[in-house]
Structures are given as structure tokens and as C-alpha cells.
Simulated assay, not measured.
Amino acid sequence: MNYNNSTALSVNLNKIALIRNSRPGDYPSVVAHGETCIKSGADGLTVHPRPDQRHIRPRDVYELSELVQAHQGIEFNIEGNPYAESLGDFPGFIKLVQDVRPHQCTLVPDSNDQLTSDHGFDLNIACKKLRPLIRELQDLGVRVSLFMDPDIEQISLAKELGADRIELYTGPYADAYKQQDEKFHALFKTYLDAAEHAKKIEIGLNAGHDLNLDNLAHFRQVPSLLEVSIGHALTVDAIAMGMPAAVTAYKKLCTA
């Protein structure tokens, strides 16, 4: 049973930038692919700039912000480590957010050398540094989401800190989904319970990481799922299907 009438699809463009960076120039164009995603039905675009600029570069952030502003109703989500400082021509994560003021900023507990996001915040440790930062971003008109594990106690702390939303880290769900065993069903219940709790305490719910065409429909059983951010799998599917068809397929699952 699907508890959500519709879930917004935000397409993460990191992997397009990663391919672009393997050669000189601007091919493939991140902005052009962003526009294709929008025209194909995406509700928003996501980027995760890192100091090493392994994929998204500062220029991409500024240009994609302009692209999104030209399309009414489309949202821009910038995610990343809030403490990533300037390095070379990388101005620092918060400086990028301050400059473009995206609709949403998803704060993620990444280290600079981390391959990919692989855990949520421990707010027992991070809360003192995050609280003023959340307020600062909200004062700029930016909605703040915290990258979280499906832990009810931690989600309550996110609410106490004043976050507008949480983004559930779905990597473990995606790994377990392949097995469809008792451990998977037990794990999925933790996501259901986390989502129910988020709904109860009135904090918005997003989700992301390794969601794909196989496991997304099942995950949408969690209640009140506002948005999913999908990049890696969608880009891989686009190699076989083409970007417009891939976005359309994911969008269909988000609205079914």
C-alpha cells in the first residue's frame, strides 16, 4: 500500500559532472543535462559539491541556480558537509549556499576524503555546531534538511535543533532489498517507524542513496515521503534508456 499521493523527484547531477571532468571542456554539459531532467518531469535538481571538486564544481552550482530560477516550481537542493572549508578555487560549502540561496540545503556528515555519503548525523555530538548554522541558513530563506539514519531518538533531536526536514539515508535499505529476507523486513520496519515518528513530530521527510527502479516503489510505502534525491542509479539507467526516458521512469514511480 502506498501512503504517498506523490513524492518529488530531485535528480542528482554529480555523475554527469564526474564524466565531464574526465576530459577537458564542458562535455557532457551539467547544465544541459539539468535542463533535460527538468523538461522530462524532474521536480528539482541536486548537487553535492566537495572541496576536491571530483564532480560538481563551484561554477556548476552558480549556473544550475540560474537554470532553476528560470523554471517556476523547480527546486534546487545543495547537499554536503557544512564544515567543508575553502580549498583552491572552492570557496567553502556554506559560502556557496550563501551565494545562491537554494530552496533546500541538505547537511551531510561527510569528510573531505569520503567516497560517498554513508551515514547520518550523530546529533548528540553535532548539535552544538549545527544549531546556529541551521538558523543562519533559514534566515537566508533556505529550507534545511539533515542527513539521518532511521533512528527515532536522532530524528527527535533533529526536530529540537529546528531542522525543517530530514533525509533518511537509504543505503542499507538498498543493500538489504536485494535479499528480501527476514533481516530486510526487519530493517524496513525501522524506516517505517522512523517515517511515522517524523510525521508525528511534524518534521518533513526526504530520502536518498542507492534508490533505483527496482527498490523505489517499495520504499515509497513509508508515510509522508516528500522527496527523493536520486543520481547514481538514474545516470546508469540513462546510459541504456536515455536521460529523458530514465527521468520519466523514476517520475512515474514517484507518482504511482
Rank of each mutant, 00 (worst) to 15 (best):
D175V: 06
L67A: 15
E182C: 08
L157Q: 07
V97S: 03
K128R: 13
N4Q: 11
L211R: 01
D210F: 07
V236A: 12
R135W: 15
G242T: 10
A233V: 08
A163I: 03
R143D: 10
A256G: 14
N77V: 12
P24F: 13
D89R: 08
L115C: 13
A42I: 09
A163Y: 01
D175K: 12
M1C: 15
A163D: 02
P172I: 11
E63W: 05
K252W: 10
V142F: 06
L45G: 07
D149V: 08
D26S: 12
D60C: 08
L107D: 01
H119P: 01
M1N: 15
A84K: 00
A233R: 03
V144D: 00
A174Q: 04
N5G: 14
R20L: 11
P150C: 03
V222R: 01
F93M: 07
E167F: 00
T36E: 09
R54M: 10
E182I: 06
N12P: 10
L168E: 09
D52M: 09
P150L: 02
L130V: 00
T7Q: 08
T248Q: 15
S65Q: 09
I230W: 03
I56V: 14
R220I: 04
H218R: 12
Q138T: 13
H218A: 15
L211Y: 00
S229I: 03
V236L: 14
R165T: 03
D181F: 05
K178A: 09
L187N: 13
I125F: 14
Y62R: 14
G25Y: 06
E63N: 08
M241K: 14
G88M: 07
V236N: 09
K183E: 07
D237C: 10
E202Y: 06
A207F: 00
L13Y: 01
H209K: 04
D26Y: 08
L13P: 02
Q180P: 04
L130G: 02
S86W: 04
A186T: 07
N81G: 01
G231C: 11
Y62K: 05
K189C: 06
Y3H: 10
P28H: 08
V142I: 12
P132K: 03
L130C: 02
E85I: 10
S111F: 07
G120P: 01
D52N: 14
I155D: 04
A256Q: 11
L187T: 11
M148S: 05
V142R: 00
H33T: 14
D26C: 10
L161S: 02
A84R: 00
L137T: 03
E66C: 10
T46Q: 05
S10E: 04
Y173I: 08
D181Q: 03
Y3N: 11
P172T: 12
R23N: 13
L130M: 04
I166N: 00
I125T: 12
E66F: 10
R135F: 14
D214T: 14
D181N: 13
P28A: 06
Y62C: 06
T170C: 01
A217C: 11
H197M: 06
R23G: 09
R59N: 09
I166A: 00
R23M: 06
G92N: 01
R143E: 11
I152A: 14
I239M: 15
H197T: 05
D175C: 05
T170N: 00
A256F: 07
